[in-house]
Amino acid sequence: MQRVNMIMAESPGLITICLLGYLLSAECTVFLDHENANKILNRPKRYNSGKLEEFVQGNLERECMEEKCSFEEAREVFENTERTTEFWKQYVDGDQCESNPCLNGGSCKDDINSYECWCPFGFEGKNCELDVTCNIKNGRCEQFCKNSADNKVVCSCTEGYRLAENQKSCEPAVPFPCGRVSVSQTSKLTRAETVFPDVDYVNSTEAETILDNITQSTQSFNDFTRVVGGEDAKPGQFPWQVVLNGKVDAFCGGSIVNEKWIVTAAHCVETGVKITVVAGEHNIEETEHTEQKRNVIRIIPHHNYNAAINKYNHDIALLELDEPLVLNSYVTPICIADKEYTNIFLKFGSGYVSGWGRVFHKGRSALVLQYLRVPLVDRATCLRSTKFTIYNNMFCAGFHEGGRDSCQGDSGGPHVTEVEGTSFLTGIISWGEECAMKGKYGIYTKVSRYVNWIKEKTKLT
């Protein structure tokens, strides 16, 4: 034993070699072989497995989906700052455009905790909710729209109204504003409101030439003092309507412009014939205590009207009353817009006519005020429907199939267009061939041609 100890002390290297040989010859039971080890760690190889990531292109799944990435790591994937920024906006807080917040056709661009709407022409605001041009839906104005110097929408209202708090709607500024039905039992019968379409306001006024200088022999019209197929109006439903009495009662109609003036057809009036105007009328054979009678003290036909040349060209006249009318729910003026808007309103496509005229061709006159909704007829169809001249200051309205029309005794009465609950004068009943005849239409004086003249002559002093 002493000898062994001496050998170990003198030859430590020998001992180490012996131990190493023993270990190498022993069977290893701690580690699995290569094949079995792979069965336990069965993990798919990654895209760049075996390579240094710093030297390969980034992978979106590896960089940002398996674990949260930084902007720089995302930049490695896209290799483009702009594309990385677009991805980053949604990656950080989701897609803010998912709810489609942009209105009126706006395009949404996502941002971090926010979004941006790219608005089409005519709109602005956070969600493109603000109209900035009158060309689109009248700028959301209830009545009139004008573009300011910086191309912003400025709404306005006709006389007797003021802008509401929203700067879009119009509200009454006087007790009985024009064009409004205020009798409670008839307010439910107000005709369907007309909503502004998209309009090209630059070209809204037709490029028409008034044929002022045409000389033409007097034409022989049949029954051209021209509501057939209409309905009984309720008291106060058309408070701007008046009836004219002269040699015979209810020979023509008219509309209240203001307390002192009536507008009617020029062919209705004769110099030297006494005319009485009755406002607030409903049943011409009954006294309903809503009527107001006034005498006409002055007749002003349009300066281009000449019955000797043509009885229905420039067929418009103004009547001055001896005493002002007292405005109330049964006696209310009709609204008159400017030339541009009167023309736009007419193009809405349908209007209402009213009167006490004959209820059928050569038949009896109506006792109760009649009204009828009539569609506008395109000019080409209008011209083809008659052998008589249709001037540019006239328009056609009615039904091709016949059966409904204005008729004798309705002449001078109103053709009105309702705009968001307020009625505007767009025409004056003038003439036609018979009444409600198939293929024939009622012919009306186009008020847009005469609004400046009306307003100039009827100013209240």
Rank of each mutant, 00 (worst) to 15 (best):
134 C>F: 03
77 V>E: 15
357 G>E: 14
310 N>T: 08
138 N>L: 09
450 Y>S: 02
229 G>F: 11
414 P>G: 10
349 G>R: 07
375 P>S: 15
66 E>D: 06
163 L>D: 00
299 I>Y: 07
149 A>E: 11
340 E>Y: 15
248 V>D: 02
104 N>C: 01
372 L>P: 03
200 D>G: 12
121 F>L: 13
405 D>R: 14
157 C>I: 00
330 Y>H: 12
67 E>F: 04
398 G>H: 03
318 L>C: 03
387 K>C: 04
220 S>N: 12
339 K>T: 10
332 T>G: 04
29 T>Q: 10
265 A>H: 01
215 T>M: 04
195 V>D: 12
62 R>Q: 15
246 G>F: 01
42 N>W: 07
39 K>T: 10
230 G>C: 12
177 P>Y: 01
22 Y>C: 10
369 L>V: 08
371 Y>H: 13
216 Q>A: 12
265 A>Q: 03
391 Y>T: 08
123 F>D: 03
126 K>Y: 11
71 F>I: 14
386 T>F: 10
16 T>W: 12
238 F>P: 03
433 E>N: 15
377 V>C: 03
15 I>K: 06
126 K>E: 11
253 G>D: 03
103 L>S: 13
223 D>W: 08
112 I>L: 15
307 A>P: 09
234 K>P: 05
366 A>L: 11
418 E>A: 14
160 G>K: 01
233 A>M: 08
193 E>I: 13
135 N>L: 12
419 V>I: 15
108 C>L: 02
232 D>I: 11
261 W>P: 00
87 F>Q: 14
324 P>Y: 03
262 I>N: 00
108 C>I: 01
91 Y>V: 10
440 K>F: 04
260 K>R: 12
40 I>S: 05
214 I>K: 12
325 L>K: 00
194 T>D: 11
222 N>H: 05
80 N>A: 07
131 D>M: 12
395 F>L: 00
73 E>Y: 05
77 V>Q: 13
111 D>L: 14
182 S>D: 05
402 G>M: 09
407 C>E: 03
277 V>N: 00
325 L>A: 01
275 I>F: 04
369 L>R: 13
17 I>E: 01
85 T>K: 06
51 K>Y: 05
72 E>G: 05
394 M>P: 02
450 Y>A: 01
109 K>H: 11
379 R>S: 13
212 D>F: 11
247 K>P: 11
131 D>Y: 11
422 T>K: 07
318 L>M: 03
140 R>W: 12
135 N>K: 14
33 D>S: 11
321 L>V: 09
120 P>V: 11
138 N>Y: 07
164 A>V: 05
370 Q>L: 03
135 N>F: 15
214 I>P: 08
420 E>C: 06
282 H>L: 08
348 F>V: 15
364 R>K: 12
103 L>M: 11
314 H>D: 05
33 D>K: 07
415 H>I: 03
342 T>E: 04
67 E>I: 06
219 Q>A: 15
81 T>W: 06
458 T>Q: 02
246 G>W: 00
441 Y>V: 12
16 T>G: 10
40 I>P: 15
252 C>F: 00
165 E>L: 11
441 Y>I: 11
373 R>F: 04
28 C>I: 01
259 E>R: 06
341 Y>W: 13
340 E>G: 15
434 E>P: 13
405 D>Y: 13
21 G>F: 10
41 L>V: 14
389 T>Q: 12
449 R>D: 12
285 E>D: 10
273 V>N: 03
309 I>D: 09
365 S>T: 15
323 E>F: 08
11 S>F: 15
261 W>N: 02
231 E>W: 08
113 N>E: 14
9 A>Y: 10
